[in-house]
Simulated assay, not measured.
Amino acid sequence: MSDIEIVRVGPEAAAAVLRVVHEAFAARPPLDPPAAALTETVESMAERLRPHGGLLACLDGEPVGTLVLDPVGNTMYLRRFGVVPAAQGHGIAGRLIDAVVDHAEGYEDLTVVAREELPATIRFWDRQGFREINRRSPLVEMRRPLRTAVFHVHTADAMHVLGASLAKQLRPGDLVVLSGELGAGKTTFTQGIGVGLGVRGQVTSPTFVIARVHPSLVDGPDLVHVDAYRLGTMAELDDLDLDADLDHAVTVVEWGEGLAEGLTDSRLEVRIVRSQADEADPDAELDPRRVEITPVGPRWHALSFRGLG
């Protein structure tokens, strides 16, 4: 098994960082104008690294991936992000992003700038939970809340397991706001939460009853399962009189984005997105999902995503 090590580096590692950047960017399709990264020198890279440093990923001791940290206001920009072609497929890019989270405490989000001529690169950042916030051709700026955790789920059973494992960290009063297209897996995820909480009754889509309460069988919180698909305003959600249950139950609101946030000052926002299994094979049967979990508010300051799924 290959050994991957990611370390924080400064200007003393400029030569190693530069080698990775040049090799990674040179392997990309030609761009007009060319990528500015290809004009970097050891001296200019040292100046980039001097203020806040960067990360260097080594595979079996050989530098193969890197990025430069560039905080601007409350966001941490990731500059000169690259993995050499020979080391791709080892999960190094994802490991680098995970490592940034450990080195960006105090910042609200992560931001990258990609080239619109490189759709595969944009898809990579999208799969990592980044969303386009600005486009000035040929540059696309993408941002991800710092504490968003991204899980790649390939089966309904795995979605169920992810919900059940999340339930172990839920307590009375918690609110989970679920979003995603029809058939994305929101109800399957909620079924997993119900199993993890140990509640009574089969959790099904509450489309026709809007809200359903599943009492606990294990002296824990009840599960209140709400479908807000046919609710148009916060006032209509208030009319369900959920407040009486919120303090003593875990409340899961499907289609709740833009409606349920006012129920409490803390919540988990869970977004489920379909992703193509294999873009080279449109007939592939695998239909994976990307599950993005973002904690909002003081309740979740101590949330650990380790071990979920």
Rank of each mutant, 00 (worst) to 15 (best):
M1H: 11
D3W: 03
E5S: 12
V21W: 03
H22R: 14
E23H: 11
E23N: 05
A26H: 09
A26V: 01
R28E: 15
R28L: 15
P29S: 08
P30H: 07
D32H: 11
P33G: 02
A35D: 14
T41Q: 09
L49W: 02
D60E: 07
D60S: 05
V68M: 02
D70H: 13
V72Q: 14
L78V: 15
L78D: 00
F81K: 04
G82M: 06
P85C: 06
G91I: 08
I92H: 01
L96D: 01
I97Q: 10
A99L: 04
V100Q: 00
G106S: 10
L110P: 01
L110R: 00
V112N: 04
V113P: 06
A114C: 14
A114M: 10
R115N: 15
E117I: 01
D126R: 15
D126C: 01
R127A: 13
G129R: 06
N134D: 14
R136S: 11
S137D: 11
V140F: 03
R143Q: 13
P145C: 11
A149I: 01
V150K: 04
F151E: 02
V153T: 06
V153S: 01
A158Q: 15
V161R: 15
L162T: 01
G163L: 06
L166P: 00
Q169K: 15
L170Q: 06
L170V: 08
G173P: 03
E181S: 09
G183A: 07
K186T: 10
Q191N: 03
V195Q: 14
G196A: 11
V199C: 07
T204V: 11
T204I: 12
T207E: 10
T207L: 07
I210P: 00
P215S: 05
P215Q: 09
P215I: 12
V218T: 15
D219F: 05
D219E: 14
D222W: 04
H225D: 05
D227I: 08
G232K: 13
G232Y: 04
A244F: 14
V253D: 00
V253I: 13
W255N: 07
W255D: 00
G256T: 02
L259K: 08
A260I: 08
A260Y: 08
D265L: 04
D265M: 06
S266F: 05
E269P: 00
I272F: 09
Q276I: 11
E285F: 13
R290G: 03
V291T: 08
V291P: 03
P295C: 05
V296P: 00
P298K: 10
R299H: 07
R299A: 10
L303C: 00
S304C: 06
F305D: 00
F305S: 05
